[in-house]
């Protein structure tokens, strides 16, 4: 049975400009120990999906659909029950590690605080915190624990935030854009670090990213998002080597090392999505059918594609 089963997730935002459909009928499953990557560009709704699962979205969001975590629906359960799951069983590694750490608390305290809140004594908590930091490849945990967040490098800070998120050994981790805005050195270390995390058999991970290299290295399966819906989902290696949806193909080809061939145009505005295929206008295989009929997600084995051409 799947650990997390999301079906027909819709997320809309009521804004001054009208209703914005950020996520559209998204369904996916994550099995125990599996890593699913949600990849897409800005505005594709990938971060919104992650936030909506833990109900972290602002008040003007309207979430529909189901998200069953071990048989219980995360979207409709009581806030009190969700609080027990948040952090303990599902945890969230936020995008910006610097903003997520308290600059006035020593690193060790930020981790041990989590254990203290669980009723452990101060000493035990500190010891557990050191253990967590050691497991997460933080160099010289004893010394780092006594420093303040600003004294760590960007990569180390991210590990610390991950440490806080993983300290209670959750079954599912949602990581939001771990490599965004990092320079190549830190990014390389982050990829290495997530590989190390992924190696843990018991833990499932939902990795939200725009970084195709990271996704390729770490994920078991990938879901590609475009304009709020999944356009393609399949096993990571095959999907990256032989993408079948024109958008995925275009995205991979636009990388500098793959020839820097641009996808013309821009993603459609979520305020007024076009009729037919959302990618239609930018697609080089455009057919008549594409502009009048919205394609459905078609199954073929472990693979799903939303395209009229296949």
């Amino acid at each position: 049975m799947a650990l997390l089963e999301v079906s027909h997730l819709d997320v809309g935002f009521n804004t001054q400009l009208g209703s914005v459909q950020a996520v559209n009928d998204v369904s996916f499953q994550i099995k125990k120990g599996e890593t699913l990557g949600l990849i897409g560009e800005s505005g594709s709704g990938k971060s919104v999906i992650g936030m909506s699962l833990l109900r972290l979205l602002p008040m003007n969001a309207c979430v529909k659909g189901e998200a069953f975590f071990e048989g219980k629906d995360l979207l409709t359960m009581k806030e009190k029950d969700l609080q027990k799951i948040r952090g303990e069983r599902i945890s969230f590694i936020p995008q910006n590690p610097t903003a997520s750490l308290n600059p006035l608390l020593k690193n060790g305290l930020q981790v041990s605080e989590v254990f203290e809140r669980k009723g452990h004594s101060k000493e035990n908590s500190w010891k557990s915190a050191l253990k967590v930091m050691e497991r997460l490849m933080i160099r010289d945990p004893g010394l780092s624990a006594k420093k303040y967040p600003h004294q760590l490098s960007g990569g180390m800070r991210q590990r610390l935030v991950a440490g806080i998120a993983l300290s209670l050994q959750p079954e599912l981790v949602i990581a939001d854009e771990p490599t965004k805005g990092l320079d190549s050195l830190t990014r390389g270390k982050t990829i290495e670090f997530f590989k190390h995390l992924e190696g843990d058999e018991d833990r499932a991970m939902l990795l939200i990213t725009h970084d195709l290299d990271l996704a390729y290295e770490i994920c078991d399966r990938l879901a590609v998002l475009y304009a709020g819906e999944i356009v393609e989902m399949g096993p990571a290696g095959e999907l990256m080597d032989l993408p079948s949806h024109p958008y995925t193909r275009g995205l991979i080809k636009s990388l500098p090392k793959n020839g820097l061939i641009p996808l013309e145009g821009r993603s459609p505005s979520l305020l007024e999505l076009p009729g037919g295929c959302y990618f239609g206008e930018r697609c080089c295989h455009h057919k008549k059918e594409c502009s009048c009929k919205h394609p459905q997600l078609k199954n073929s084995g472990a693979w799903q594609t939303r395209c009229h051409l296949n």
Partner: peptide, 13 residues
Amino acid sequence: SMLDASVQAQILR
């Protein structure tokens, strides 16, 4: 560096 991959390709081109 702040742009999506497909847009980055457009701008570099």
